[in-house]
Design a protein around this nucleic acid. Sequence first.
DNA 1: CGCGCGATTGAGTAATTTCAAATCTAGTGG
DNA 2: CCACTAGATTTGAAATTACTCAATCGCGCG
Lengths: 191, 191
Amino acid sequence: MEDTTQDILRAHIEEIVSLTDDEFERAFSAFTLRRLKKHQFVVQSGGLVDSEFFVVKGLLKASFTNEQGRTHILQFAMENWWVSDYLALNRHTYAALDIDCLEESVVLCLSRDTKANVCAASHKMEHFFRIKTGAGYVSLQQRILSLMNDDAQSRYAQLLKQYPSLFQRVPKALIAAYLGVSRETLSRLSR
Amino acid sequence: MEDTTQDILRAHIEEIVSLTDDEFERAFSAFTLRRLKKHQFVVQSGGLVDSEFFVVKGLLKASFTNEQGRTHILQFAMENWWVSDYLALNRHTYAALDIDCLEESVVLCLSRDTKANVCAASHKMEHFFRIKTGAGYVSLQQRILSLMNDDAQSRYAQLLKQYPSLFQRVPKALIAAYLGVSRETLSRLSR
DNA sequence: CGCGCGATTGAGTAATTTCAAATCTAGTGG
DNA sequence: CCACTAGATTTGAAATTACTCAATCGCGCG
């Protein structure tokens, strides 16, 4: 009768803070479970954003498409990752990103307001989110350095090394859109 | 007899949380004031990092130099900005960045351990840092999008618009190193 | 068998870099 | 006030790199 979704979230949180059963229950009840089909959107460019998403299972991508129709991938979100349009979420503005499923997925949704309540009610949970956000900050900083310093070849190699499973799960064109090169260029790298 | 440094930090924190005098005193006492000369380093690549820095006055830069000697600027830190090598700080590893002063500066130093104590002792301060880090995350995300989507011309224009004072304060070569282009290319943009 | 999607390849083009040289500017000392 | 120097900026020209556009290839599925 146990839903393993709880265990996944709990293990994820308890990598950073330990919670009593009661504390966890309270936190968990703030989330909403959503089952998503491949190609389903959780954030649409131009729409409003009221939640962030914790990926229990599956794979999503957060992407930006400019006026000329060129699209860039800001993030792949696999199991145990958080994803949202945080700019739109934090500033109550319209989304610039599209976030959609590359696979059938299961996510836990946490709305802005509920998160605020959870953090206000629980210092531990606030701590968890601070640390988590700090880790996210660091990885974005690394990504910037990598974009500025490494050529596509080396960025490709790093991604392959860090997330080998991605390459089984997504088409190369999306990898290219993440790395910031055309798919033709990506194709020519291997050789 | 009042040091305005306190007021600056307090105003900065109170943009996000309001504190009693006592709460602020407690937080403020966690910081150490440092006066820095132009060209002085607060973080050196290869060294250890135990603090982050809040810029009270002046201007610093955080940069990365690769094996070939090419250097990129990750961040300019002006008044009211936070700066450190957060990767090294969080993971207790050696710094990959150099952080040094472009002008004579005054910073407040907050060590990793002291910050942990401040956050543990004060839910409000933990909240402050969570929100602040979240804002930083968003701006890094914007920077990534800008690096991937905009050409150098447009990145230059955006920077000029957002931080016009930078252009009076730093040489163009550093702007180029921030934008991710050679200084020759930057020079050719205007025309 | 053929369609359609993803991936690769080729050729020409555009943009940026590199390296070198010229120019400009602010501060210094005569 | 002028000449001089160091650093910063600009310019030129060749070389590199990635891009675009088009065509081809490979393969799974109806």
